[in-house]
């Protein structure tokens, strides 16, 4: 079948503002939106710019707005979208570089600001730092993040103020704060209690709905709000 794909285009060398361009593409219902973009780039307009790498939903390169909502192009099937034109636009809240490519630097700066790595200066035991299955389970959900930015750029709080650390950074802080082997939880909670930390979250849920890994993001943020308010991780 033939589908119309309406893409928000922007060429920084010639355009003042972004504009829509519609392409007609031959597609199967089982095609992914990424396949459509590849077909357009390969056969119709080689100047179309977008990021992709793995094409299997794990590298986090191709988050974009598809029919008005953040999703991974490589995980979105044509048959799962409402019939008619498919609209593809870049993520909101980040600067536009070209077409569907946004500047991810602010996003990764927020990620780095929460110390997303294990901190433990105690001498390691002979074999390894042990952890019970229950202790591992405590932060399992937030280990699934692929840093695609779908959550952070779906958040109205982040749109209105880019200094908010955003859901993705909080998810990755959660991953270590609730890890029994880590020792920097208090420091991370201090960072997140800042005015641009967790309290910018208004429990809107856009992030949870946007996450291609189905992480319970709002819940992770809620657990951190609670940990800061009560001073306890239980």
């Amino acid at each position: 079948m033939e589908i119309k794909v309406k893409i928000l285009r922007f060429n920084p060398e010639t355009d003042k503002r972004p504009h829509y361009q519609t392409f007609r593409v031959e597609a199967e219902p089982t095609d992914r939106v990424l396949d459509l973009l590849e077909k357009i780039k390969g056969y119709q307009d080689g100047s179309l710019a977008f990021r992709r790498s793995c094409a299997h939903g794990i590298c986090g390169s191709d988050a974009m707005r598809i029919n008005g909502m953040n999703r991974l192009a490589c995980k979105t099937l044509v048959k799962d979208l409402s019939k008619g034109t498919i609209t593809v636009e870049p993520l909101l809240g980040l600067s536009l570089i070209k077409d569907l490519i946004v500047d991810m630097d602010p996003f990764f700066e927020h990620y780095e600001s929460v110390m997303p790595y294990l901190v433990n200066d105690e001498p390691p035991p002979l074999k390894e730092r042990l952890q019970s299955p229950e202790e591992r389970e405590r932060f399992d959900d937030t280990t699934k993040c692929i840093l695609c930015a779908a959550c952070t750029t779906s958040c109205p709080s982040f749109w209105s103020n880019g200094r908010y650390v955003g859901p993705a950074a909080i998810v990755n802080a959660h991953r270590f704060i609730f890890d029994s082997r880590d020792r920097a939880g208090a420091e991370r909670l201090r960072i997140l209690s800042d005015q641009f930390g967790v309290y910018r979250c208004h429990t809107i849920f856009n992030c949870t709905l946007a996450c291609p890994r189905e992480i319970q993001i709002t819940k992770a943020i809620g657990e951190i709000k609670r940990a800061i308010a009560t001073g306890s991780l239980d």
């Binding site: 008005g68 909502m69 749109w159």
Partner: peptide, 12 residues
């Protein structure tokens, strides 16, 4: 307008 058009669902 772009923000308002975002399809966040009932909670938004």
């Amino acid at each position: 307008w772009q923000g308002l058009r975002y399809r966040g669902g009932g909670t938004m």
